[in-house]
Amino acid sequence: MSGADTAWVMVATALVLFMTLPGLALFYGGLVRARNVLSVFMQCFAVAALMSVLWLVFGYSLAFGHANGFWGGFGKIALIGLTPETLWGTIPEIAFFAFQMTFAIITPALIIGAFVERINFSFVLAFCALWMLAVYAPVTHWIWGGGMMADGGIFGATGTKDFAGGIVVHETAALAALLLAVMVGPRAKRHTPPHSPVLVAIGAGMLWVGWFGFNGGSQLAADGGAAMAITVTHISASAASLSWALWERIKFGKSSLIGLVTGTIAGLASITPAAGFVGPLEALAIGVIAGILCQEAVILLRDKIRIDDSLDVFAVHGIGGIFGTIMIAALGHGAWLAQLGALVVVGLYTLGVSWLIAKLVARVFPMRVSKEDENNGLDLSSHGERAYDHTS
């Protein structure tokens, strides 16, 4: 066991949890209307708690067990038999479990952005629970858990390269988000301004800082590889922030704060799969392109195709993660077949299983709240609370 590696992974674990609580909650919460901000926080916190318990009981075993190439099996259920001395490489396996748990938290939490302001809270919890176990955990096993897409698997000796989750996190969450946005239908009032750009910016800043743990921690070591991953993560985020803002000014005459920080997230999502393989100049190129590419994807989905993916989960996280995964091959750090093949297989699996889960859960819990509840806001109608007390 390496004390340095263990310490770094534990710090990274805290940083990744910080991305969801409160980073993502603030980022998403600021983008919705004031009458719905508390519901977004409720969904983020409840999903984080539920995924943590499920990851302990079933998820970790399904993802990192050793049953076969398709799934991990039940050998690690509830961490039975695991001791503080059990190692995963140079760190205690319990530290690896905790680090991966924070990924299992933020991945379904990302989906929340697609259906805010009109979703039934019970549906959110039931869908995310089944989705994490049936989609996220198996895909994690395929690529990170020694499964069928890892080294020596169906895509050749080198396997699919996804350093920190371009496929495992961003593609899966974004495709599920896009699917649910279509299934639940658009909001009654689609084009409403964010109630608090300040909260959005604070949340984006927390996500940016937390992403150092997300990508740097994925090295699972306190070494030069982790330092490079953090550096390229920051460069890509910076470049995408600037390219988004510049492209927005060229097209619309002004650069907005919401646009700038959305560009930040686009750059972070795009570098995620490649962070362990590229250098600073390659990260700069990825970020510059991502800021423009993801902005155009937002415009296409929102204004041309008119899908109400409310907080642009697919256009930013999905397109960014897919783009970064492709760039691994384009820059010569991976095989085209392995990268594209994994994107296709994971994409089809995610869409199919996510659709099935949504249909099954909708038989028990309505997917959408009533028109009256949507009009009154989910804070009061679903949770009996207000985010802001305007009477005091």
Results as ranks from 00 to 15, higher is better:
residue 4 A to I: 07
residue 17 L to N: 09
residue 35 R to W: 05
residue 37 V to A: 15
residue 44 C to V: 15
residue 46 A to R: 02
residue 55 W to N: 03
residue 74 F to M: 13
residue 76 K to H: 13
residue 78 A to F: 10
residue 86 T to A: 13
residue 87 L to K: 08
residue 88 W to T: 06
residue 91 I to G: 01
residue 92 P to G: 06
residue 98 A to Q: 13
residue 99 F to G: 00
residue 107 T to R: 08
residue 119 I to C: 13
residue 120 N to Q: 15
residue 131 W to P: 07
residue 142 W to E: 01
residue 142 W to D: 00
residue 142 W to Q: 03
residue 145 G to V: 05
residue 150 A to C: 00
residue 153 G to F: 05
residue 155 F to M: 02
residue 156 G to L: 03
residue 157 A to G: 06
residue 158 T to E: 15
residue 164 A to S: 12
residue 172 T to D: 02
residue 172 T to W: 02
residue 176 A to W: 07
residue 179 L to I: 06
residue 185 G to I: 06
residue 197 P to F: 10
residue 199 L to E: 06
residue 225 G to L: 00
residue 225 G to R: 04
residue 228 M to K: 14
residue 229 A to E: 03
residue 235 I to C: 04
residue 235 I to D: 05
residue 236 S to R: 06
residue 253 G to C: 08
residue 267 G to I: 00
residue 271 I to R: 02
residue 275 A to I: 03
residue 282 E to F: 02
residue 295 Q to F: 14
residue 313 V to F: 06
residue 319 I to K: 03
residue 321 G to L: 01
residue 325 T to M: 04
residue 326 I to F: 12
residue 333 H to W: 04
residue 333 H to M: 01
residue 348 L to R: 05
residue 350 T to F: 05
residue 351 L to K: 02
residue 361 V to A: 07
residue 371 K to P: 11
residue 372 E to T: 11
residue 373 D to V: 02
residue 376 N to W: 12
residue 380 L to I: 15
residue 386 R to A: 11
